[in-house]
Design a protein around this nucleic acid. Structure first.
Lengths: 234, 234
DNA sequence: CGATGGTGATAGTATTACTATCGATGTTGT
DNA sequence: ACAACATCGATAGTAATACTATCACCATCG
């Protein structure tokens, strides 16, 4: 990743927060602190009280930024998908072959993030862990439909839409591009979790990243493209 | 489904409960009442207090059966997977062709349950809703590894293992059978949820059940079998 | 008839998820 | 330099949640 990317500002839907946490010192401490805490203790044990003690502020001050811990989780995941959308756009820019663009996109969506990214505001590695383990809790709630009206999930939808469009470039007749890509995204997160905690639900291989390999092959086989095309790329 | 199936008793790992809820009147009320309540208000708003008022008992009495509401959710999902394992075994018994057995299994795993099943103890339709929306919350918790030691997720693992074995019968060299099947299971649940709440993440078609169609074709394409075989079966 | 197990009723505790208020400290425009 | 304003910390308080503990009642079973 280059220096330019590090300076790009990811914007998050302003209906998620009460006060933009990116614009103040306390706001940044809330974000970085919450990533550390949620990653370490899990979202169910994470509270604003614990966060306030961790970043040396008061509970009430945190509530000035986010109306609930659910909104804070929503913010973190929305930021992640905004970041991912940018990665997808940047990494596939100026590449002619749709097959190659799809392959790059699938890799981005399924490979683990290992870079800690300390010079940036947010710890990407920990954020990725949170996305794997906790992000489904941000939409598997009774209030989805209400939250969804505010356009909170647009980043995720844009990622799915963007990659689906590449699928349609390759095979305009494929009927389920959105299903395919959302299956890949959710599936990849689940496989990472299973590998760590419920290994009988997945398969690992020592020589390559089996998750990337599995989903790449799955997608190309499903939309009806030769495997040989894929192997040229890797 | 026939009468025999209705009389088969699904057993659940006895480490999940303190007292077997299947063996008493109150226990059955707890199960049926919790399915109704969790389905209606969502797991996060479900409490033992509300359940006790709903089924006319005391909070303390419910705690004699389950040590927490998480264990109760675990019980419901474990029951579901026990039931599904039985369905898989029964529906594929005495069928020679592995391709046909795989096709049947995939249909079972991905098609919606619409039968209310009132003569049975548990409302299957509502239980299916709970599995779709809430079941991931039973394992996406900090205590997974601890819970997992008690063999609580065996039903799920057995379902994945059983169908994976059929995949290997068809293509013994396929390297990722568990990944493939767990992707199908989780994916199908997600697609049902997306279709209801976040439709831009999925695709629907009016003439057939697109979820069943999508995942069946995906699996056969991925493991390298002709599509024509599939179409013979449906 | 007495022991046992299942149940109902009540009470109590620590924690959580907030809301409200108030005063101190900067920061900005004029 | 000063008023106006936003920001923050500190404290207090509330309703609900997730339990735990105790005790008395009642049916059943040997």
């Amino acid at each position: 990743m280059n220096q330019l990317l590090q300076r790009v500002r990811i914007t998050v839907n302003d209906r998620i927060y009460l006060k933009d946490p990116m614009t103040s010192n306390l706001g940044n401490r809330i974000l970085t602190g919450s990533i550390d805490l949620i990653c370490d203790m899990g979202f169910e044990h994470f509270t604003f009280r614990k966060l306030s003690q961790c970043i040396k502020t008061s509970e009430a001050s945190i509530y000035r930024y986010f109306e609930s811990k659910n909104k804070l989780l929503l913010y973190l995941t929305a930021w992640y998908w905004g970041w991912m959308e940018y990665q997808l756009a940047f990494s596939t820019a100026n590449i002619e072959s749709p097959t190659k663009r799809l392959s790059i996109s699938l890799r981005l969506l399924t490979e683990p993030i290992t870079r800690v990214n300390k010079d940036r505001l947010l710890n990407l590695k920990k954020l990725y862990q949170i996305v794997i383990t906790e992000s489904s809790k941000s939409y598997l709630v009774k209030s989805v439909d209400e939250i969804n009206k505010d356009g909170v999930y647009l980043g995720y939808k844009n990622c799915v839409g963007r990659v689906s469009d590449i699928v349609l470039e390759i095979n305009p007749d494929y009927p389920y591009p959105h299903m395919l890509i959302s299956t890949v995204i959710e599936g990849a997160h689940h496989q990472r979790y299973f590998a760590a905690h419920l290994p009988r639900l997945t398969n690992t291989s020592s020589d390559c990243d089996s998750v990337v390999d599995f989903y790449s092959k799955m997608v190309f086989a499903t939309i009806g493209t030769e495997h040989s095309v894929l192997s040229q790329l890797s």
